[in-house]
Structures are given as structure tokens and as C-alpha cells.
Write a protein that binds this DNA or RNA. Structure first.
Length: 662
RNA sequence: GCCCCCCUAGCUCAGUCGGUAGAGCGUUUCCAUGGUAAGGAAAAGGUCACCGGUUCGAUUCCGGUGGGGGGCUCCA
């Protein structure tokens, strides 16, 4: 047999004709898949003269995806071992893991997952080789006749979406056989691949949970049972991932909301409707107050509007046509009846408001407007009510009643670019003031299928948004066709302290409402012109932002937001009066302070303050009293002794004023 | 809305293979006066989410309602 001349990781090499990548990379244990001429392939792939081969490490993004995809396969094999009558859906890799959808005889429960997991461990231990086999549509349909979902995918092959593409994407139809020790197939699955060389290349995995999912993502389709799992190149990395999840759970705003006495969702009120307790109220008010001040400085004017309106307003705005499903049903008022029960006077329908913009439009319209008034920036903390489907509610971040920090800006077309630019800067700087640092921007463009307005207007507005976004020197992600029907938008995505991204602010141009409301202003030449309208929510919802900040800070708010900024802890009862006097001066300086005069021991008081995540503990004992001083203990356990009362106040008020974290 | 799981004291959870319940923390009172993350003791506190059914008997089994969780779909 002749040798083949190929290039491996950039170096010209010569190999035996029947050598495969798995032999080439035999010494590199982390290479689990490769690229041949730029295409991701199995390590068992045949090579030919002139091929350019590149080893892919299990730790690279592509290697991880293959690891997880293969682990999904092992899971499917295990499921069919344990529950023979289970039909297979799809099983792609996802961020940090994988899932596989099944149609089982009955839904899985937690004990089933344990059984499946141990069956998986056996398969991994077995070291089954993943063997690729090219087939034809006819053969595949025959072979997989007992797998109706797979057959459906084969039928769809011509027009596959991205999720199904791991099953049947690519130019060839392939089946992967898992070969047992004797080289005979023990299990097969329709799949595009590529896969790890063998199941023993799966170093660490864990099944996470089972859930339901609609087949091919449509609620019109049957519901399948999905099992989520995760897989990593090492046990350590798996453990680190599980620790991150545990950390996220500790930070969960729903848990912290209870622990720190911030808010609750009394059953009596109803799903998705929160009450804020005094401590949560302080945080919220601090958030709102600062926002008000900054908006005032930026030229916003404050307005108020009612929570209820007659149907006509939302007919005019179009919300009843498009979003009535998301609105609380109407209440009928002022209906009068004849004695026989028939209607004498028809009632009026009133709706809870799901949005503030129609009201702001009415304010704009309340009198004639001149170009001299523009840009007119109307701001409101407007509480809205949306009848969210019960399954989507999530603590305070997805609720049925919430308060938007909502602003609508009316400006001329000429003013729009500058307005968008300064708006985006304002928004980002304000988010930074609240402690978020890491952002990227997303530009959502027109979906021609469902949108209104002139092409030229869309292009102009989209370009103005793009220009404003680029000026920020942040990563800009394009969301092609993702805009709402009435105009393009920019959304600000923020990363929190443990790296999760949250969609925060949105800035949205609206071509629809000014027209529907026939908004006009008098231009310089006396003609009537239609203003451009910009929707802008910074927090989106105060409640949601509250939840995000709670998780970002893990409940340890910076002093300016902390419900209790300083707590007094006397070393012994004898110093309570002294400390009480000191704290009065703290209070007079505007510091939110409490005195722990309970009969707990001081060690216990420190523990309590620590668990309540109070930024400053003000401790006083004999030495402090004698010196007219206090000791400050911080959340990180550090302490400064013998600080004069004035210095202590200065330090605390400075951290509040500067909005720094301590 | 759909699928699965859950609901026991203020909180976190045990428990009852059907005979009306328990811990820790918290709360109250008493003792202890203590220099850096839980001092000690006692007491109070529960229609076992709610409504039906089965049963001699239901917190436990079954059905429904409400609420919560994990996903899917959705998020103007």
C-alpha cells in the first residue's frame, strides 16, 4: 500500500494509506474529533491524498459540542435499554450540555433518571465505538420504520431547521452504529455526527432533569419528554459547573426575597402579583429615586396615567387587535337593565393597561405641539398588568403586574439620530451606576413578513440605531428580522456577577403609533408634521431589575441600595446607650441605621448582621466608648477599630454618595 | 396554556405502608453581661394548601381547585 501525503495541524506528513485520524492523534488524548479540509469529521474517517487535517480538542467549543452530542446519544441508547418502548426524537448539544427528546410509554420520574444514568455509565465503560454508516432515504425509512419521529425528520431532510440538523443535516444521510466489544452493532441512531471515537471518551457527565417539550417546538405538536444532561472533559470541570449552579441557586432572587424580607407573593392576591415589604420597599425606592434624579437631569418630564382605560384607547393603539390575549379581560361598567333583564343601556368595557404609550400619546395630543417643544420626553413609573400565561411566571422577573420605567420621546426626524445616540449613552451610564459593567448590544431589524411602515423610514431608523450602537464600542449582535412589527430596536444585554446575561433596556423606534394617533406638531414653516416616537424602557420593569440586581449582588447590595446601611452592635448591654447615642448622629446624617439591642450575645448579632448582608456593622465596647469612637466591621470580615464617630459617618456617607460597593 | 414534580409550624425540612404529627432556625419569657459568624432553659406556634370522593376512620389513597418549581410555547 502506498503512503498518503497530507497536512496535519499545519505540517506536511506522510502516512500509511489505511491510517485514520485516530491513529495520527493516538498520542494526543484530548483530540476527540478533527477537521478534514475544514469540515468537522470523526476520527475514524478515511483520508485521501492531499487532505488537510486538524485535531480538535475535547475542551474546544467544537470538541465540547461533540462530547455533549455523543453523550446525548449514549443517553438515548440507555433510555431504550431501560424503557424499550421509547421512541426517539432529537438530541442536540446545547450550552453547557445536551438534551434528548423522547416519546416514552409514560413520563420519566427522578428514579428513572438514576436508572438511565447508571445504564449510561455501563455503556461508557463498555467503550463502544461510534461507527458512521452512509445510508439512503429508502433504506433508512425501512430500518427506522419503528421510529416515527426519525422518519418524519428524514422526510423533512430537504428543508431542515437548525435543531434537526444534528440528526439529518448535511449532504448525506447517515446512521451511527455503536459497536460492542465483539465489533457488532448494539445500538443505532439516525445522526449526522460527528461523534467521539468511543463512548469511553466521555470523561464526566450527569443527567440534570426531565421536562416536557413540544415536538419540533410547536405547541400544535405532541408533547415529548426531554431529558437534560451535562458533560465535561473532566470530573473537576463537571464539579465546577455544578458549583456554579449551586451558586446561582443561592443567589436566586425568590429565595433571597424571603430570606432578606424584601417581597412576597401572597396567594390571596394571585399569581404573579407581588407585595414589597419595608426592606424591599427601601431598595426599590432608592432605585427609583436615583432614576428620577437622573431623568430630570436629562430633560425628561414626569407624567402619570391611570391603570384603567376604556377599550377605545387600546382599539386606537391597536393593542386589542394584536395583544388582547395578553391582556386581563375587560370589566363591564355602567350597564343598565330593564326590569325584564334586557339591556337598557350598554355598558362600557374597561381594561387594565398593559402598556403606557397610548396614555402618553394622549398627553402629547392634549394640545397643539410646536417643533420648539421637541424632543418631548415623557417619563412615568407606570404600573401595567399583563395576563401572562401561568407557565411563564417566574418570581419578580416575570410577573403579571409590574412597573415600567417607561419613557416616550417625541422628536423630529432630523432629531432622531442625535436623540438615539444620547439616549443609548444615558441608558448605559445609568445601568453602570447601578453596578452592571459588562454589556453587549443587539440590533433587531425588520421582518418584512410582518411589519408596517415605509422602507425608507425603516432603513433610516435602523441605520440611526446602528450608528448609535457602534459609537458605544460594545459588541453588537445582529438580530435579523427580530424587530416588532412597528419599528427597529436596540436592546442592551447585561452580564451579571456570575456571567449570566439579562436583557435590560430597549430602545425602540415606532412608526405605527404616531400614525394611529395622528400625532402632529407645527414645523418651522408652519406645516403639520408627524413626530418620530421612541419607546424606551431602561429597567424594563422595576421589579425585574430589582430581581436582577438582587441576584447580581447576591443580596449584598451596595450601601446606597442596602435596606439597612449600618447596624449597631454593642459588645455588651452596658454600651447600648452609648451606641444608641452615636447612631442617632448617623441617622441625622441620612444613614439608614438600626441598633441590635436584643439579648443575643454579640457573636450572634454579628452572625445575624452578616446573614442579613448589612454593609457596615458599628461595634462599640469599653475601649470605643472611652475613646468616643466605634469599630467598623465589614461584610468581608475585616474590621477597623477606634474610628471617630465623624470619620465613621464620613466614610459611610461617602460610599453612599459615590454608590460604591463595599 | 401544555407536560412532569411539589405544597406538613413564620422559614428550611423529617414523618405517617390510612388510626389527626416532629426537628432545626425564628418568635416570646427567664437565666446569662458576653470583643468578632449560633451561651443556656422553658413556652407558645399546625383544620398536614383548599374542596369533594373512597373508607369505621384521610395529612396519607383518588379526583378537582388554588399556589409553587422545572421545562416547552410565549414575552407588545
Amino acid at each position: 500500500m502506498s503512503a498518503l501525503a497530507i497536512k496535519v495541524d499545519g505540517k506536511e506528513t506522510s502516512i500509511e494509506a489505511d491510517s485514520k485520524p485516530t491513529h495520527i492523534f493516538a498520542e494526543q488524548k484530548d483530540i476527540v474529533v478533527c477537521k478534514i479540509n475544514g469540515v468537522l469529521r470523526d476520527l475514524w474517517t478515511d483520508l485521501k491524498d492531499g487532505d488537510v487535517v486538524e485535531g480538535i480538542s475535547i475542551s474546544s467549543p467544537e470538541g465540547l459540542a461533540v462530547l455533549r452530542h455523543s453523550t446525548a446519544h449514549v443517553m438515548a441508547q440507555a433510555v431504550q435499554q431501560v424503557f424499550a418502548q421509547t421512541r426517539l426524537g432529537i438530541g442536540p448539544p446545547i450550552t453547557d450540555g445536551f438534551y434528548y427528546d423522547f416519546d416514552p410509554e409514560r413520563p420519566f420520574n427522578p428514579e428513572d433518571l438514576e436508572k438511565i444514568e447508571s445504564a449510561m455509565r455501563k455503556i461508557v465503560k463498555d467503550g463502544q465505538r461510534f461507527k458512521r454508516r452512509v445510508t439512503t432515504e429508502t433504506d433508512a425509512l425501512k430500518e427506522l420504520a419503528h421510529e416515527p419521529y426519525k422518519c418524519e425528520l428524514i422526510g423533512l431532510k430537504s428543508g431542515v431547521g437548525d435543531e434537526a440538523s444534528v440528526e439529518v443535516g448535511g449532504t448525506e444521510l447517515t446512521i451511527y452504529d455503536n459497536l460492542g466489544r465483539d465489533g457488532q452493532p448494539v445500538w443505532s441512531d439516525l445522526c449526522r455526527g460527528p461523534h467521539l471515537p468511543s463512548t469511553k471518551n466521555i470523561p464526566a457527565f450527569k443527567l440534570m432533569r426531565s421536562a416536557a417539550a413540544y415536538w419540533r417546538g410547536s405547541e400544535k405538536n405532541p408533547m415529548l419528554q426531554r431529558i437534560y444532561g451535562t458533560a465535561w472533559p473532566s470530573q473537576d470541570e463537571l464539579n465546577a459547573y455544578l458549583e456554579l449552579l449551586a451558586e446561582a441557586e443561592k443567589r436566586d432572587h425568590r429565595r433571597l426575597g424571603t430570606e432578606l424580607d424584601l417581597f412576597s407573593f401572597p396567594e390571596e392576591i394571585g399569581s404573579g402579583l407581588a407585595v414589597f415589604h419595608p426592606k424591599g420597599g427601601i431598595v426599590r425606592r432608592a432605585m427609583e429615586d436615583y432614576s428620577r434624579i437622573r431623568h430630570e437631569e436629562e430633560g425628561y418630564e414626569f407624567v402619570y396615567s391611570p391603570h384603567l382605560t376604556k377599550a377605545a384607547l387600546f382599539q386606537k393603539s391597536g393593542h386589542l387587535d394584536w395583544y388582547s390575549e395578553g391582556m386581563y379581560p375587560p370589566m363591564i361598567l355602567d350597564e343598565e337593565h330593564h326590569p325584564d333583564g334586557t339591556i337598557k343601556r350598554a355598558g362600557q368595557q374597561y381594561y387594565m393597561k398593559p402598556m403606557n404609550c397610548p396614555f402618553h400619546n394622549l398627553i402629547f395630543q392634549s394640545r397643539g405641539r410646536s417643533y420648539r417643544e421637541l424632543p418631548l420626553r415623557l417619563f412615568e413609573f407606570g404600573t401595567v398588568y399583563r395576563y401572562e400565561k401561568s407557565g411563564v411566571l417566574h418570581g419578580i422577573t416575570r410577573a403579571r403586574g409590574f412597573t415600567q420605567d417607561d419613557a416616550h420621546i417625541y422628536c423630529t426626524k432630523e432629531q432622531m439620530p442625535a436623540e438615539l445616540d444620547s439616549l443609548l449613552t444615558f441608558v448605559l451610564n445609568l445601568l453602570r451606576d447601578y453596578g452592571l459593567e459588562d454589556f453587549y448590544l443587539e440590533l433587531s431589524t425588520r421582518n418584512p413578513e410582518k411589519s408596517v411602515g415605509e422602507d425608507a423610514d425603516w432603513i433610516e431608523a435602523t441605520e440611526a440605531l446602528r450608528k448609535a450602537a457602534l459609537a458605544q464600542n460594545l459588541e453588537l449582535v445582529l438580530d435579523e428580522g427580530g424587530a416588532a412589527f412597528y419599528g427597529p430596536k436596540i436592546s442592551v444585554q447585561a452580564k451579571d456577577a456570575i456571567g449570566r446575561t439579562w436583557q435590560m433596556s430597549t430602545i425602540q423606534v415606532d412608526f405605527q403609533l404616531p400614525q394611529r394617533f395622528e400625532l402632529e406638531y407645527s414645523a418651522t414653516d408652519g406645516s403639520r408634521k408627524r413626530p418620530v416616537m421612541i419607546h424606551r424602557a431602561l429597567f424594563g420593569s422595576i421589579e425585574r431589575f430589582f430581581g436582577v440586581l438582587t441576584e447580581h449582588y447576591s443580596g449584598a447590595f451596595p450601601p446606597w441600595l442596602a435596606p439597612v446601611q449600618a447596624i449597631g452592635i454593642p459588645v455588651a448591654d452596658a454600651f447600648t446607650d452609648y451606641l444608641d447615642g452615636v447612631l442617632k448622629t448617623f441617622k441625622n446624617s441620612g444613614i439608614r441605621v438600626e441598633l441590635d439591642s436584643s439579648d443575643d450575645r454579640m457573636q450572634k448579632k454579628i452572625r445575624n448582621a452578616q446573614m442579613q448582608k448589612v454593609p457596615f456593622m458599628i461595634i462599640a465596647g469599653e475601649e470605643d466608648q472611652a475613646a468616643g469612637a466605634v469599630s467598623i466591621r465589614y461584610r468581608n470580615g475585616e474590621q477597623k477599630n477606634g474610628i471617630s464617630v465623624d470619620d465613621a459617618i464620613a466614610e459611610i456617607t461617602k460610599s453612599i454618595k459615590d454608590r460604591t460597593q463595599v
